[in-house]
Design a protein around this nucleic acid. Sequence first.
DNA 1: ATAAATAAGACTATTATAGTCGGGTATAAA
DNA 2: TTTATACCCGACTATAATAGTCTTATTTAT
Lengths: 135, 135
Amino acid sequence: MLKLSKKSEYALMAARYMAIKNHGNAVTAKEIADNYKISFELVSKVLQNLAKNKIAISFQGVKGGYTLKKNPFEISLIELIQAVEPDYQITDCLRSESPKNECSYSDCCKIRDPLAEVQRKIDKVFYETKLAHII
Amino acid sequence: MLKLSKKSEYALMAARYMAIKNHGNAVTAKEIADNYKISFELVSKVLQNLAKNKIAISFQGVKGGYTLKKNPFEISLIELIQAVEPDYQITDCLRSESPKNECSYSDCCKIRDPLAEVQRKIDKVFYETKLAHII
DNA sequence: ATAAATAAGACTATTATAGTCGGGTATAAA
DNA sequence: TTTATACCCGACTATAATAGTCTTATTTAT
C-alpha cells in the first residue's frame, strides 16, 4: 500500500552502488547481488531495465557489466523507478493505458482529477530527488 | 506499486460522499455501496475505521449511519488514508514498528535516511490536500 | 417485537509481487 | 578456437498482500 516494490528498491540500491564504485571496470550484477545478499536474477533484470532506459550502459562478455550513463546529479529517482515500474500511478484510472474518464465505479467516483494533482506533486518529489541525494 | 489500496480509495469516496450529502440524516454504508456499486461489507469496514479514528461519527440502530466529525477543510487525505492503512510508508524499514536501523540487506542498503526525507515530502502532499479539495 | 443499522472477526478468493529456471548471445583471454 | 564470464530475455512458480465474503452480535427507532 503506497509502498515501493523490491524492484524499485533494488534499482535505487544498484544505481547508488554504481555511482560509488566507479573503479575502472564496469560493475557486475553478481557483485551487487553478493554485496547486498539479494537475488542475482532480480538484480540482473533491474539492471537490464536500467540499460534499456538509457540510465546505465551494459557491456557484454567477460569483463562486462554496467556503468551509469549520466552523473548522479542528473539521474532522478523517478527515472529509476519508472525504469522498473512503467506504471507507478497512485490509482488505476490515472495509468497511461487507461482511456480518459474511465472509471470503474458506477456514476464515477469523481475524485480522479484531484488525485491527478496529487500524483503530479508526488512525481515532482521523485523528480527533484536525484541519485546524488541518496548517496 | 506505489498505488493506493481500494480501502484508501473507498475512504476518500465515502468521506467525499458524506461531505456532499449532508441531508439531515446520517449516511448509511448501504447508501454509499449502492451509489458506487461497491462492496457493502468493505465500505462498512472503511466507515468503521473512519469512526474509530474520530474522522466520522457513527450512529447505531435504525436511522443510524455516519456523519463527518470535522469540516472538509480540516480533514486531510493523510488522515483518511492512515485511518484505513496504518502503515503506508514507501519502504518497510520506515514503518513505525520497525526498530531503528533495521535493514534487511547485508551491510545495509544505506538509502534509508534519504528515503525518509522523500517520505516526509509525500506525507506533506497528503497532509496539505484536504477533503474539500477533492470535492 | 421487529427491522434496520453498526461492530467485529474469521474466512476465502484473487491478484500482484518476488523469486527461480533455462536457453540464448556476446566477448575477453588463454 | 575454445572456454569462462557476463549480459539478455521469457516463461514459470511460490509467496504475500489485497480484496471480498460470511457470520454473529449489538444497538435502537418505530
